[in-house]
Design a protein around this nucleic acid. Structure first.
Lengths: 171, 171
DNA sequence: ATAAAGATGAAAACTATTTACAAAAGTATT
DNA sequence: AATACTTTTGTAAATAGTTTTCATCTTTAT
C-alpha cells in the first residue's frame, strides 16, 4: 500500500526514521553503537511498547510478553525499559500511582500534554492540541534564557476531573 | 465584625488567607471541619513544611522534626503529609528520584514551572516567570474546552541541563 | 472529669524496582 | 562452523519508600 505512494517522492528523513523504528532497526543500530546486543527478549519488549499507544507499566508489559514468551522475566523488562529510556525511545512517567509508566516516542519530537483525572485516575493524552503553538514555545524560550537552562524535554500535566467523573458526580 | 476593625487597611482575602495559613489557623479549621484533630505532631510538621521553600521529602521533614521532637515517627510524617495534600496545602511531586517531594502552596494559586537537571538532579523553581501569562492560560482553556476536562491543577516541568552542568561540561 | 473517637509509634507488611550470580546466548575471530 | 570473549538472562534475594496493624496514648465534646 505504500509502494505506489512512495515511488514518486523520496522518503523524508523523518519518515525513514519512523520506518526504521517500526522495524526495530533503528534501535538495534543504536544499541550496537553502545557496544550492547540485540536479543530475543529485547526485540519482544520493543515490539510491545512500540505497538502500544498506551502508557504501559512494567507489569503491563510483562503480562503481555508473558503470553508469547513465558520464559522472559520481569527483571529483564525493567532492564530493557531502562535501556530504552536511555536511548530516548521511551519516556518514563510517574503519574503518582506508585509505579512508573512508559510511553513510546520514537521520532516524535512533538510534546503533548497529559490529563490525569483526580477521581478515577484515568490518564489521557492531549495529542491533538499543539501545545507549542498554543504558547509553550514562548514559556520555553523565556525559561531557557532567564535560567540559562538547556531544555531537553517538556512535560505538561493537568490534574482535574475528566468528563465522565464530572457528569457521573463521582468525587 | 471585621468591617469596623479594619477601617484603614482592609485585609484582602488573599492576605487573610495567607495570615491564617502562617499561623496554622486555617489548616486547623479545615482539619476540624473534616472531623479530625489538631495535634502536636501535626502542628510541628505543618510548621516545617510551611516555613520551607524547598521541595522536601518525607525523610527531610522527619530529620528536621526529629531535632525538636525525637518522639515523632516517620509514619506520622507520612500520614500528616497525606492529610496536607488532601486539604490542598501541599503538592506532592514525583521527580523520578524514587521518593516523593512536597511543596507548600497555601493560598498561592499561581502555578510555576520546575526545572530538573538531567545531569546533577537539581530541581529549580521558576517562580519568577508567570507561566499563565506566557501562554499556559491559552493551553488550559483549549484543553478544558476540547476535552471537557475540569482542570484543578497544572504542572509544567522542563528536563534538561542546568547552567552549572552545561558549563562544567559534566555528562 | 470522663467517655468516645481519633491519632500515634513501633514493628511488620507491601510494593515497585534493583542487585547478585551462575548459566545461557550473542558476537567477532579464526 | 567452532572458538573464545562478553553481554544478557532468570532466579532469588535485597532494597527502599511507603502503608498497615494494633495496642496505647491524646484530643475533644460532654
Amino acid at each position: 500500500m505504500f509502494s505506489k505512494l512512495n515511488r514518486s517522492h523520496r522518503a523524508s528523513s523523518v519518515e525513514r526514521h519512523m520506518n526504521d523504528f517500526r522495524r526495530g532497526k533503528g534501535w538495534g543500530a543504536q544499541i550496537k553503537r553502545m557496544g550492547r546486543r540485540m536479543t530475543v527478549p529485547r526485540r519482544a519488549i520493543f515490539k510491545v511498547v512500540s505497538n502500544s499507544s498506551k502508557h504501559l507499566s512494567a507489569e503491563d508489559i510483562y503480562m503481555e510478553i508473558h503470553k508469547k514468551y513465558p520464559g522472559i522475566g520481569l527483571t529483564t523488562i525493567y532492564r530493557t525499559l531502562k535501556l530504552l529510556v536511555k536511548t530516548g525511545l521511551l519516556i518514563k512517567h510517574e503519574f503518582g500511582e506508585g509505579c512508573a509508566r512508559y510511553e513510546y516516542t520514537a521520532g516524535k519530537i512533538k510534546e503533548h500534554a497529559h490529563l490525569i483525572c483526580m477521581s478515577c485516575g484515568k490518564v489521557q493524552d492531549c495529542s491533538d492540541i499543539d501545545i507549542e503553538k498554543f504558547g509553550l514555545d514562548k514559556i520555553s524560550k523565556e525559561v531557557s534564557s532567564r535560567y540559562s537552562f538547556n531544555i531537553k524535554r517538556k512535560r505538561l500535566v493537568f490534574h482535574g476531573l475528566c468528563e465522565e467523573c464530572v457528569k457521573g458526580g463521582k468525587k
